[in-house]
């Protein structure tokens, strides 16, 4: 694989609006994903014209990592977005680079998913339009977010000139790092052209541009809680592990334990009170009968 690359002379990357940056992203999920997550994946596919679809993965004995890497190689993808759903409730999203320049890859806990089908989200955009990717300021500041930003650019950014993409930009994806989690939002860019010269002048005076821009949310929206960043694809050296991450299993276990504890505490305190009452001896008051 690598040898073929070495023989070619290096040529400068030309960006002329044609399809040069051949990013292909494998989008698939593990078998057993629930409806909500399947819908989310479907939404992601509609938004990413550079995706490659693959049926639900049943890894079997080979292991998930090997299987995904193999599929990616067969489909000649260089990035992958993989969703695994555990216990029909917890979803984990893998995002990574595969193939020749494999790695890094990152694993996230996926929460707060709202798909595009929800009727509250009123925005709409062209199918296959290239998104602007806005990152919160912390993506340039925090070390573990920097590689994630590059991964997001690879996975969610539509390559320029992709045959299925549209030449204009009408949506923006926002990645915000808040509360140690990455919140992902997808907005439509609505531009209101000024109706007359007066309006245009006023708008230009106010905001520096003639069009007044507003955003409308399209969906899907979800929150990614980073768990680990690996050096390879689906494995390798751990580059970063989120110390604040609490696995949903632990959360549930704690909850069960708390409930269990509450019963034990109640019983215990009942017993203690009883023994206390029994053992309690009221001292005799010598003056009790004085005024009788």
């Amino acid at each position: 694989m690598a040898s073929s690359d070495e023989e070619k002379p290096v040529e400068e990357f030309v960006s002329d609006g044609r399809y040069r940056n051949k990013q292909r992203c494998l989008v698939l999920c593990l078998r057993g994903a629930t409806a909500r997550y399947r819908h989310l994946l479907e939404d992601i596919r509609t938004l990413m014209p550079h995706h490659k679809k693959e049926s639900k993965l049943d890894a079997g004995k080979t292991g998930v990592a090997r299987a995904v890497n193999d599929i990616a190689q067969i489909r000649s993808c260089n990035s992958v977005l993989f969703l695994e759903c555990r216990k029909h409730q917890d979803a984990y999203m893998w995002i990574g680079r595969v193939g020749e320049n494999a790695g890094p890859s990152a694993r996230f806990h996926l929460t707060n998913v709202h798909t595009m089908d929800e009727l509250r989200l009123t925005g709409n955009c062209m199918k296959g339009s290239r998104p602007l990717l806005t990152f919160d300021e912390s993506f340039g500041r925090l070390n573990h977010l920097k590689p994630l930003k590059e991964l997001f650019v690879d996975v969610f950014g539509t390559p320029r000139g992709h045959p299925a993409s549209k030449p204009f930009i009408d949506r923006v994806m926002a990645f915000c790092y808040v509360d140690n989690k990455i919140w992902v939002r997808n907005y439509q860019i609505l531009e209101k052209q000024p109706e007359n010269a007066m309006e245009a002048h006023l708008a230009k005076k106010e905001s520096g541009q003639e069009e007044s821009t507003s955003l409308v949310e399209i969906g899907p929206r979800f929150v990614l809680d980073p768990i680990r960043i690996f050096r390879g694809s689906f494995g390798g050296q751990t580059l970063y592990q989120n110390p604040n991450f609490v696995s949903p299993n632990d959360v549930r276990a704690m909850e069960y334990k708390r409930k269990n504890n509450s019963y034990m505490h109640r019983k215990d305190s009942q017993k203690r009170r009883k023994t206390r009452d029994e053992e309690l001896v009221i001292p005799e008051d010598p003056l009790a009968n004085v005024f009788r």
């Binding site: 990357f13 960006s15 609006g17 040069r20 940056n21 320049n101 790695g103 890094p104 290239r130 998104p131 602007l132 990717l133 806005t134 990152f135 919160d136 300021e137 993506f139 340039g140 070390n143 573990h144 920097k146 590689p147 930003k149 590059e150 991964l151 650019v153 950014g157 390559p159 320029r160 930009i169 960043i229 050096r231 580059l239 970063y240």
Partner: peptide, 24 residues
């Protein structure tokens, strides 16, 4: 981590901004 990041950034730095469309 910083080495890997630098690698990634270097790979992306080859692409002009119009290919990436990322904004901070």
């Amino acid at each position: 981590l910083s080495v890997v990041t630098a690698e990634l950034v270097a790979a992306h730095a080859k692409l002009p901004w119009a290919e990436r469309l990322d904004i901070i």
